[in-house]
């Protein structure tokens, strides 16, 4: 299966762009209405629970984006179809922003909940490492002047990072049981009420729409960059 991007596809993406932007804004407004006004405050955490509606989707998409990134890098090495490289490069920066957002909102949520800005548990630590992996992928690509080479090298790095993430998660779990037995206050996850599930669901869709919109914009950007490199060479 060899998909080749032609001008028709780009025109299609271009024409879909305004609708996508509109849909993203619309769903975000609905999501905001539900998460800030409509949903009740949590009976343990109070109104600080509302941070969850942006924190959880961004954490999900941070991980999902990295999986797509690493997956398309693997597929690129197998099939040699340059489309996968373009996908990887267009999605990486969105993933980095989501990772950063989940770290920031997470620590703002952590202050009222745990009383501290940061807890060294496996989930947060591996998220932090994920952020560094995104930085490494993006900046290594920029640092190498031969761009064809840069794509291959940074793709190899993305795959190695994907292997590293579960190792980190496992080792931090081990380390926590080793150093501070059971003293760690993890996120208590009580069964979520349906009234909280609705805003979370809407916000997830909104974040997904944002991911798609910006990825498609970056997709066009990366294609033009590639074309410009071609004409310069």
């Amino acid at each position: 299966m060899y998909i080749k991007i032609n001008n028709n596809h780009i025109e299609l993406i271009k024409s879909a762009n305004p609708y996508l932007i509109f849909a993203t804004i619309f769903v975000f407004i609905i999501g905001l209405y539900y998460s800030l006004f409509q949903s009740p405050p949590d009976y343990i955490q109070g109104d600080s629970m509302r941070i969850m509606y942006i924190h959880v989707p961004s954490a999900w998409f941070a991980l999902m984006t990295y999986s797509i990134l690493a997956g398309s890098c693997v597929l690129w090495f197998i099939t040699r179809n340059p489309l996968f490289n373009v996908v990887a490069r267009s999605i990486a920066q969105v993933g980095m922003v989501f990772t950063l957002m989940s770290l920031i909102t997470g620590s703002i949520w952590g202050k009222p909940t745990w009383g501290v800005w940061w807890v060294w548990d496996a989930r947060l630590t591996s998220m932090l490492i994920l952020f560094f992996l995104y930085i490494a992928y993006i900046f290594l690509w920029q640092a190498i002047s031969n761009k064809e080479l840069a794509s291959k090298i940074s793709a190899a790095l993305a795959i190695i990072g994907f292997i590293n993430i579960p190792i980190i998660k496992f080792s931090v779990d081990w380390w926590n049981t080793l150093h501070q037995p059971a003293s760690i206050s993890k996120l208590s996850t009580p069964s979520i009420d349906i009234s909280m599930l609705i805003p979370l669901f809407i916000m997830t869709i909104a974040c997904f729409l944002f991911l798609v919109t910006v990825s498609l914009i970056r997709f066009r950007l990366v294609l033009i960059e590639n074309k410009m490199l071609r004409t310069i060479n």
């Binding site: 640092a143 190498i144 002047s145 090298i153 790095l157």
Partner: peptide, 15 residues
Amino acid sequence: LTLGAKRTIFLKAII
């Protein structure tokens, strides 16, 4: 992997 990258020890440290 970073042979052709501009000489930045910082990037290598981040990796």
